[in-house]
Design a binder for these strands. Sequence first.
DNA 1: AGGGTTTTCGCCTCCGGGGCATAAACTAGA
DNA 2: TCTAGTTTATGCCCCGGAGGCGAAAACCCT
Lengths: 229, 229
Amino acid sequence: MSTAAYRLAAPVVNAVVLRVTDRLETLLWRRSRPPAEDCWSLPGGFVRQGESLEGAMRRHLAAKVGVTDVGHLEQLDSRSADTHPELWLLDVSYLALIPRGAEPDLPPDTEWHPVEALPTVAFGHAGAIGRAHERLRGKLSYSNAAFALAPPRFTLRELADVYEAVLGYAVSPTNLGRVLGRDGLLAPTGGHRRAGSAGGRPAAEFAFTRRELVVSRPLAAFKPPEGAA
Amino acid sequence: MSTAAYRLAAPVVNAVVLRVTDRLETLLWRRSRPPAEDCWSLPGGFVRQGESLEGAMRRHLAAKVGVTDVGHLEQLDSRSADTHPELWLLDVSYLALIPRGAEPDLPPDTEWHPVEALPTVAFGHAGAIGRAHERLRGKLSYSNAAFALAPPRFTLRELADVYEAVLGYAVSPTNLGRVLGRDGLLAPTGGHRRAGSAGGRPAAEFAFTRRELVVSRPLAAFKPPEGAA
DNA sequence: AGGGTTTTCGCCTCCGGGGCATAAACTAGA
DNA sequence: TCTAGTTTATGCCCCGGAGGCGAAAACCCT
């Protein structure tokens, strides 16, 4: 078949940028131009030819919303979109995790919004935020994904707070430390930190041993091989 | 910024089609035209405007390689590709699972190849096959993904053979039945089947209760909520 | 010094996966 | 018909990880 029979699309990337403060928040961008003027949307933009999709994503995160310290960046999915009046768009969405403590200086018209109380989001991007949250919930349970959300060093209580903000239910700091510690993902730094305003035993300070995503839990049920590599 | 500053790409879909016979096999297509003439590549093709990506994928699977009975279809990832001499391609890859017993009548220049002994594959598609295999291995361990690879009805021994072909190590039929049965994913049909040429107790016949992907295993460690819904 | 607060450690229990031995069901052959 | 061989099914035990709980540790404030 001839390639001329097919129209061409404009590749677009956009990211569900997540961070944890008291609650789980995502970064939204108020559109100042049509289409969808005055609506919120995910940060992103067009892809240049010769550029990798991930490269384009990082470029837009740095240029448009000042996000340079990305803890983890991962592709979610792609879809064909007819939301633009003139162009056929091919929309590739990403999940970006921002560590606590890295506060990008946001340009105007860019704000953090709690994922539990989102404003009206254009282009059907609300679904992408939901899928990103869902995937993150899964990854927290079988990998060290929290390294990309937590600050470089933290107490077990602080780390449990990160988990609670994402998972939505109470997490035991004791158990969390045991599980991640046994998998070799967490190590004490040796330092300690004062408990709080009302006293209490100082908490030991921990850090993740690796800063890339590591799948720790088996994922291989039904009799894994004996000498597991 | 103006959209005119950005060039346009041709969206392309292609699939890692997997099935299990004695071994895990993938469907490859021998290219008869440049680029990469006489090399093997994944089946796929261009996307039409207004068409969903998944729709385009199913259309190409049906038209080009005669695959209509797709047990499960899932997007893997997308990348920007400069492998075409004239066009900028945006390559979206899928994982397609074909149930045992559904034998599509393949057009010429299309053949099943064991994933352990692949021929030379063009466009860097070999990496996509590896990633597809990896993801399938994971999904078998925490979901009912095998429903898309197994025949409609089967014995536990046959199901274990499917798992072994994908996972690469021995799987106990007893344990497999216990685990999937407890999760409510597997149910006996009531029928039985003769064991083999040399006699033996007839095996009970089973079937998956659901034909969509269901994540059974918790994935929610660190104290799941009490009344799990 | 004492009460309040928070973290940490040790022990216990519970439950699911895996292994194993035995029983069950069938075929082929003598 | 009886026996040997083969394959599947069932019941039981073991083990290891996750979670719960209480006691001890470490610190603040009064």
